[in-house]
Design a protein around this nucleic acid. Sequence first.
DNA 1: TACTGTGAAATCGTTCACAGCA
DNA 2: TGCTGTGAACGATTTCACAGTA
Lengths: 277, 277
Amino acid sequence: MATGRTHRPATRSRGIPEATVARLPLYLRALTALSERSVPTVSSEELAAAAGVNSAKLRKDFSYLGSYGTRGVGYDVEYLVYQISRELGLTQDWPVVIVGIGNLGAALANYGGFSARGFRVAALIDADPAMAGKPVAGMPVQHTDDLEKIIEENGVSIGVIATPAGAAQQVSERLIAAGVTSILNFAPTVLSVPDGVDVRKVDLSIELQILAFHEQRKAGEEAAAGASVPGGEGVAEVPGAGSGAAPAAAVEPPAGRAAAVARKNGPEGDVPAVMPA
Amino acid sequence: MATGRTHRPATRSRGIPEATVARLPLYLRALTALSERSVPTVSSEELAAAAGVNSAKLRKDFSYLGSYGTRGVGYDVEYLVYQISRELGLTQDWPVVIVGIGNLGAALANYGGFSARGFRVAALIDADPAMAGKPVAGMPVQHTDDLEKIIEENGVSIGVIATPAGAAQQVSERLIAAGVTSILNFAPTVLSVPDGVDVRKVDLSIELQILAFHEQRKAGEEAAAGASVPGGEGVAEVPGAGSGAAPAAAVEPPAGRAAAVARKNGPEGDVPAVMPA
DNA sequence: TACTGTGAAATCGTTCACAGCA
DNA sequence: TGCTGTGAACGATTTCACAGTA
């Protein structure tokens, strides 16, 4: 999960738990799809399935917003779409700036979902003078020199950082000084910001590493006490069957095993060969 | 946080809590930076600061891996880098494929951090015949028809989906059928996958919506009980003090503007005007 | 009857605070 | 003396299970 410091910790603002807030956009998306198909009502069961959560959780989440359902019937789709939108602050328009128009920044600028609901790209900013004026996603890139002016004139409170890691902290400081209070950070660095500023991060390599952890575990489980040397060329044994799809499939909730293999770190082991930079 | 269904829920494999796993990459990054500066040891306090967490949490996290520190001294940087890398499965090479070479897919392909540590882009795949053969990030794009063959020949177990939402579910099914057991999904859809397959998602608009929620809240707080009529142009009366972070400074954390306007959800309100699609 | 709303229990995650060791 | 490792307290989140109601 890409998450950063989240507002004032401990003081859960008006009551809606953070975990619930993080799921509201998911519900909203599912509801919007239903709305487009003109479905008038949904049960917690159906909506939960569409959003990929379980129904008890969904009902509990909604209970924090109020009692918007009808027992025996379900939820009114349009009404819920509105209530959730309002709760998320999407009934108003949020101008955002994207700083760092490289491959990623440009991709973000072109991403439709951006402007889709409640957000509007107010400006694209880059430090490279050569980029200035160039159109990206139908909008001229502006130079970092004008960052403060842009933020202020457009009343921007949300900034997206897509610069190289080295520039991110400084960019965040300028954004914040100019009035931004929420940052979405795509640069692989930890930003340190003052209280009251929210940062969320999206980090490709962290996500991959988490997946790798689970992959390794799966492989270990399958091979049970099998192969002990991961050394060589990647190679994924574990072809077909794997733990994959298969319903019943033997080796079900093992877990235990996994341990064994990778585990046993007991012996201090030998000092490493250091990772490649 | 971008998070998806995570392996077999409830059966926390061998003991390392999911929340800890999600932080290991963060520690690893901080440690790598120290390693590059030839720093031999760090205390939990220092490392925690670099990773943006608090030291108690860091020590607890490390305690799940074993006792790798030295009381009174700290942790040996190189040694920890190795242990964490091993735990995350980064001592081996993971070939990955990226499916959907649009703006985002191309950006991902070009992203350095990808190949950097433990991962290798084995292939770029796109459904557009016109893309086939075109080089992106120094690698020819291949057509979706060959997806299964590519997965199998390269022993790929991790797939990245950067297609439009509409294609994502089907792509995931083909990837899984071909042997992939971990997916990083950038498409704004909920993927439904069989047990044993891990999915993590990265979703720009969800992150923005979460930020918007907090922005709205901040703005509302500033206006305190003040304005009963949200109408007018923002402006944060009740300056200073607010709950905000900030040093005194006059109208500091502005944000106000947007704010107030939408607030005031108290009364069940009237039925909505329906959101724009 | 079918489904929501919600206390209460179970689980998971964080923080505290201090014993123990180099 | 300084810092790790960890039991225990605490807090947040999820799940259960069922009472309540349209």
